[in-house]
């Protein structure tokens, strides 16, 4: 028997883009001031050619449930091969995360 082809009524799904990917501690090398100087992507080490921008976000302090308050230090990096990536250090949990842009 064929499943009911009619779709359920409902709002469109909103899927976020550019979701962060967690980096292991060993995949980020930091230099003076805490800025990354190299990152390991897919097993390959890439030196950071320049830090284009850095900013800090402190938000949603009122959250106590999953997600919690937001406190991140962002770095927009240009790697040695010309790629631009965004990494941030989660100042609440202490981990590093990477995003494509």
């Amino acid at each position: 028997m064929e499943p009911d082809p009619r779709t359920a009524a409902g709002a469109h799904r909103l899927r976020p883009l550019n979701e962060p990917v967690r980096l292991r501690r060993t995949e980020v090398e930091t230099g003076a001031g805490g800025a990354p100087r190299a990152v390991v992507l897919r097993g390959r080490r890439h030196t950071v050619a320049s830090v284009d921008e850095t900013w800090r976000v402190d938000d949603e302090w009122w959250r106590s449930t999953a997600g919690g308050p937001l406190s991140r230090q962002y770095f927009r990096l240009v790697l040695e091969d010309g790629r631009a990536v965004t990494v941030y250090r989660d100042l609440v949990e202490g981990g590093w995360w990477m995003q494509r842009y």
Binding site: H12, R13, L14, P16, L17, N18, V57, L70, Y74, Q99
Partner: peptide
Amino acid sequence: EVEPWSRIPERRLALID
């Protein structure tokens, strides 16, 4: 574009059906 001004990158764009 959802919050193109946001300083949190994953909140700027989203995928919609």
